[in-house]
């Protein structure tokens, strides 16, 4: 095929273009070679495991392996929908993930707008450095921090006690666990999320602000009529691209913070799959639940990408 191409090229193109074309073909080969190692890794560690998804349609018996286990069709999916706990798991996931997306976006935007007003350089820099930091720490580490703060006898309850409220058992209450998970996640990442918004604000034409000022608009009005509209495309874009995360409640965080007391409100798809599919050794069922989640996620992300393309003329890939 490559030869064909050169041949065709040679026939049609002039001498100069022919050299260029040859170079292009050489480049093509180099490109293939460059990308090859990465693709090999993808095939082995991402694609090979995907064949394992057939487990979801089998009664997987380890001794027989994937090749010889009996197929049972959609039995595991039917069982999944018959379980009362599955509805709870999906609800928890969507509420927690949705809460995280909404509050993370809101706080990041507000923070970016406010930070942009800070004129004291050292203060701005230090605050930035501090609020970006938690995003880089592991949930293993931050879970300890959270437990220390939100224990029945932790600092937060000490502070609340001074106001005569509480104590609240944040980690052991089905009313408070979700807010805790959402709140601590926002605490971890709002700073980092604000980076993009901050950039969007600085790219707004300063002339617009000046014009608004001259028209007598106060700060509040300028934010409302200049800054926010200027940020809108990026806000919209990120919101759309975040949509598929609605099924990702955050395994690391919840795994390190939950206990049976709060399964009711805090058990998400990923933790459920881990407990049932691995610890409960119900491999096929666990794979089926995971597959169901992946498929919904796939549909969501593809439509999000299309939506983003349509409304903002940008996309992730």
């Amino acid at each position: 095929m490559k030869l064909d191409y050169i041949f065709k090229g040679a026939r049609i193109m002039q001498q100069r273009k022919r050299t260029a074309s040859k170079r292009l073909t050489n480049s093509n080969l180099t490109y293939h070679l460059m990308i090859l190692p990465g693709i090999v890794f993808l095939l082995i560690f991402n694609y090979a495991p995907m064949f394992g998804l057939v487990m979801a349609f089998q009664d997987y018996v380890p001794a027989k392996g994937i090749f010889n286990s009996d197929f049972v069709g959609f039995q595991h999916f039917a069982y999944m929908f018959s379980l009362p706990s599955i509805e709870r798991v999906f609800t928890n996931t969507i509420v927690i993930a949705g809460g995280k997306i909404i509050f993370n976006t809101l706080l990041a935007i507000v923070f970016a707008i406010l930070l942009n007003e800070i004129r004291v350089r050292w203060l701005k820099k230090s605050v930035q450095t501090i609020v970006y930091l938690p995003n880089f720490l592991s949930w293993v580490v931050l879970a300890s921090v959270v437990v220390n703060m939100f224990n029945l006898d932790g600092s937060v309850n000490h502070i609340l006690d001074n106001f005569g409220v509480g104590p609240f058992n944040f980690l052991g209450s089905n009313q408070l666990f979700r807010p805790l998970i959402i709140g601590t996640d926002v605490w971890k990442s709002f700073g980092f999320n604000s980076i993009v918004y901050l950039a969007a604000i600085t790219s707004i034409d300063p002339g617009l602000h000046e014009a608004a000022s001259i028209d007598g608009a106060n700060w509040w009005r300028r934010v409302w009529h200049v800054t926010l509209p200027g940020m809108l495309p990026i806000i919209l874009l990120l919101a759309i691209l975040n949509l598929p995360n609605i099924l990702n409640g955050g395994f690391d965080q919840i795994y390190n913070l939950y206990s049976p007391v709060v399964y009711q409100s805090g058990d998400i798809i990923d933790t459920y799959v881990y407990r049932v599919g691995l610890m409960g050794r119900d491999y096929s069922f666990g794979t089926a639940v995971g597959l169901f989640k992946s498929i919904i996620g796939l549909v969501l992300i593809l439509s999000a990408n299309q939506t983003a393309k349509k409304f903002t003329e940008r996309q992730l890939f």
Partner: peptide
């Protein structure tokens, strides 16, 4: 224990 349930 008031934190019954959450303790490992």
């Amino acid at each position: 224990d008031p934190q019954f349930g959450t303790r490992s």
